[in-house]
Measured scan of single mutants.
Amino acid sequence: MAAGGDHGSPDSYRSPLASRYASPEMCFVFSDRYKFRTWRQLWLWLAEAEQTLGLPITDEQIQEMKSNLENIDFKMAAEEEKRLRHDVMAHVHTFGHCCPKAAGIIHLGATSCYVGDNTDLIILRNALDLLLPKLARVISRLADFAKERASLPTLGFTHFQPAQLTTVGKRCCLWIQDLCMDLQNLKRVRDDLRFRGVKGTTGTQASFLQLFEGDDHKVEQLDKMVTEKAGFKRAFIITGQTYTRKVDIEVLSVLASLGASVHKICTDIRLLANLKEMEEPFEKQQIGSSAMPYKRNPMRSERCCSLARHLMTLVMDPLQTASVQWFERTLDDSANRRICLAEAFLTADTILNTLQNISEGLVVYPKVIERRIRQELPFMATENIIMAMVKAGGSRQDCHEKIRVLSQQAASVVKQEGGDNDLIERIQVDAYFSPIHSQLDHLLDPSSFTGRASQQVQRFLEEEVYPLLKPYESVMKVKAELCL
């Protein structure tokens, strides 16, 4: 049975990233139509530049190519590739079939990587351009969430054990800070992308030097003109047959890092959902379990974690691919890159769409948070109580021993009897502590235990987050809708 299948058929496997999760716009960027249309555009740009620099290419040939950029006979191309065992030459023939007058000058002087690699770089750039505003929107939604809850005390956790208090907004800023680093890295790697350009079979530009009869300047002009037509500021000066596969490492490393950030955020949300302090959106008709109707599973956060793990592992592909590119190139890269580049971007696209949807509907339960604080705060307040007693004339050592005994009794009630923490009640009825009984409410005010959390939130948002989001103001209103 021949390899390949009808990918629109229910009898043929289709990647869930495309069929179930990723956005239509990201799927289109990695589609065959987008790819092969870009090949034709690159052939047109090459012909236009070659004509401008004096090669015998007519206006009629150029116009014929322009008129057929979208006229792609995919069936013919597939048949040609089956016959020739070469995808680029299959599309040269297919393009030439609908451009008979231009057929002889299509791909003039070029090698397969002229269309293959340059198209990949265009796709990487455009895919990054799709991700950047999506990530900015996630940051914006979380920034709104953090600002609104900047002063809401909550129990902090280290080692997932109760620690000092923080605020809900401050905790959210930990998430935002990681995503801001990801946004900066995505922008950097996007701006650092260079075009492969017009380089020939081993990167020496020998074929173009021959076409222009040894004119170095025209060869350099050709490279520059096509690079500018493709919208790049610069091209690699040095290439082998391909652009260095280190570029793929750079791009997928940034995406993998984004995956790590999203995994951490969504894990926190899942843990908070278990504590009943916070939940992701839950639709009115949504079913959490087929057997347990009360369940409210954090399905979206779980999906993000599941896909983020996949995204983090994909960076190993370009690392290994770059390491086995012998001399000017081997074909070890080809099949692998067809999979890992598309999957990385479709996965990143999915987790950003999902995280935006989550961040637009996060639900906080202040009463649950308050109750958990009441359970733990008495123990945390013991040092403040000791200091207040010393100020009232008591002995630190005597007070410490009193607190120690009462704390152990209260802990026994919590752990052995399943009761509430009654340390404060014990202190309130103990005559030894009568000098500070009137101060206990103040000493137990949760806001006095959150330090500068709310001020940190305000400063972080104003100095770091809002300036970073400013270039994306025009796209901030787009909502994230999930079908599944």
Rank of each mutant, 00 (worst) to 15 (best):
I62W: 04
R188A: 02
L311W: 03
E148P: 05
R40W: 01
A348Q: 04
I139C: 08
K402V: 05
P10Q: 15
M181H: 15
E64Q: 11
K402D: 06
I436E: 05
I176Y: 01
D191L: 08
Q161Y: 00
S448N: 15
S12P: 10
G197K: 02
E383R: 03
S395R: 05
R188P: 01
L319R: 03
K199R: 04
K66T: 12
R40Q: 04
T111I: 00
T52Y: 12
V364A: 07
A2L: 13
L468T: 13
I249N: 06
A102I: 08
A256S: 13
L186K: 03
P281E: 15
P281D: 06
D441V: 09
G394I: 12
D420P: 07
Q458E: 11
T58R: 13
S15R: 10
E302W: 05
D216A: 08
V364Y: 04
K246E: 03
K284C: 13
S359C: 10
Q63S: 13
E148M: 08
F36H: 15
A78K: 12
Q397N: 10
L174V: 13
A150G: 10
G169I: 00
E464M: 05
Q397P: 02
D11I: 14
T38A: 07
R196H: 14
Q205Y: 00
Y34F: 13
F379D: 01
I339G: 07
R83N: 13
G288W: 01
S253G: 13
A78G: 12
L461R: 04
D129R: 12
L352G: 04
T244L: 01
K101E: 10
W326M: 15
E228T: 12
V363F: 08
A150C: 12
R83F: 14
R296S: 07
H91I: 03
G288N: 01
N71P: 10
L130W: 02
L186Y: 03
I385R: 02
N71T: 10
I351W: 03
L355E: 01
K170A: 02
L17Q: 11
V88F: 02
D6C: 07
C304S: 10
S207A: 12
V226I: 09
L346S: 10
R171F: 03
G231C: 07
G419E: 12
D73T: 12
S19M: 05
P298K: 03
E220W: 11
I249T: 07
M292G: 03
L377G: 05
H442P: 08
F208E: 03
Q63G: 12
L135W: 06
G240S: 07
G214W: 11
T111D: 02
L307F: 14
T166R: 03
L174H: 11
D120P: 01
A3S: 14
T94Q: 10
I237M: 10
L258S: 06
R194W: 09
